[in-house]
Design a protein around this nucleic acid. Structure first.
Lengths: 173, 173
DNA sequence: TATAATCGTTAACCTAGGTTAAAAAAATGA
DNA sequence: TCATTTTTTTAACCTAGGTTAACGATTATA
């Protein structure tokens, strides 16, 4: 029994329309979500409404706000970029399964380790690379990204404005 | 049995001089380290030797390169800012303990969850805040940081140059 | 204690990226 | 299809932060 099969067996399924929010910054929402279909963005909004994109999610990806799971409230929002179908399972249930089943606990550790690797990578890119380097790296890793995600959203994921990304794209040489 | 007590029981202890490296970028080093004494920095160096600081470590903190634990090599270096004493335990041993002891697996999940929260926070700061906001937030969270860490290193942790940090500090108003 | 190394500050100048605004291009919807 | 909204581009101007270099203040080390 691993995480995916637990969610598939015990999770509840829900469909979301394009532009709808699965949860919003500030919500108390201690569920773990698994994307079955669709494309989503996890994003922060500041007091002026300016958006910053933490990550994009595709079929097979899972997400939760770790702050919310630990008793706090969601530090970001989860928004559908196209119609989406998700499964959700409460963190309590996952934790309970992990506390009673060794094999399952091990698969959760694997999941958290791969999450750690991704976040380590993201921290590296934001700390050490220029916006242009981050953009090139993204294109290398996901050459088809612009078929799924608008350039505006790619810019907000890279931590720059859409104007700046357009400039980078059309830069001479 | 939790992670800390496992490391204390089975880990091997080693002392390091100021400015020495526990491991370096590129090393194959699949150990998890626990800081008993001292202060360290986890940092990246680019091809020009420019340094970027991922995090500072103090007594009680633990660290490993998740890339290295997953069969790769260390994506960053671990450098002592003052004489330090660390315990180390191989990831194999930790993983084996987790795979045979439910209580221990659960404590590893807690550890990874708190790591996830920290990294989520760091991502937020690098993505959404200006250097000045990051500096103010750091001072709020760690008012005594400058007793332990030089301003040069604080700047490299914030993702700016020492010159820029000096400017921020002395900015009018 | 003297000498060297590192640290922090300041200044001058430069560049990446932000802001605003307008217009063209593309996608969406009635 | 036509109208509306959203996306992308471009331009002008601005600002935060980078770079280099010099100098004084600290801190280490012979």
């Amino acid at each position: 029994m691993n995480f995916i099969s637990l969610v598939k067996q015990f999770g509840s399924s829900q469909c979301y329309k394009k532009k709808s929010y699965v949860f919003s910054q500030g919500d108390k929402d201690s569920y773990i979500y698994l994307v079955l279909e669709g494309v989503l963005k996890a994003c922060y909004y500041d007091k002026d409404g300016k958006e910053y994109i933490k990550s994009f999610l595709f079929s097979g990806d899972s997400i939760a706000s770790s702050q919310a799971l630990s008793g706090g409230s969601c530090s970001f929002s989860l928004c559908c970029l196209k119609e989406a179908k998700l499964l959700k399972l409460s963190y309590q249930q996952v934790r309970q399964a992990a506390d009673t089943n060794l094999e399952f606990a091990s698969s959760i550790i694997d999941l958290l380790m791969s999450f750690a690797m991704k976040k380590e990578q993201r921290e590296f890119e934001l700390l050490c690379l220029s916006a242009e380097q981050r953009y090139k790296k993204l294109l290398t890793k996901s050459p088809n990204i612009s078929e799924q995600i608008t350039q505006n959203d790619i810019a907000r994921y890279l931590g720059i404005t859409p104007v700046a990304l357009s400039r980078i794209k059309h830069k001479p040489r």
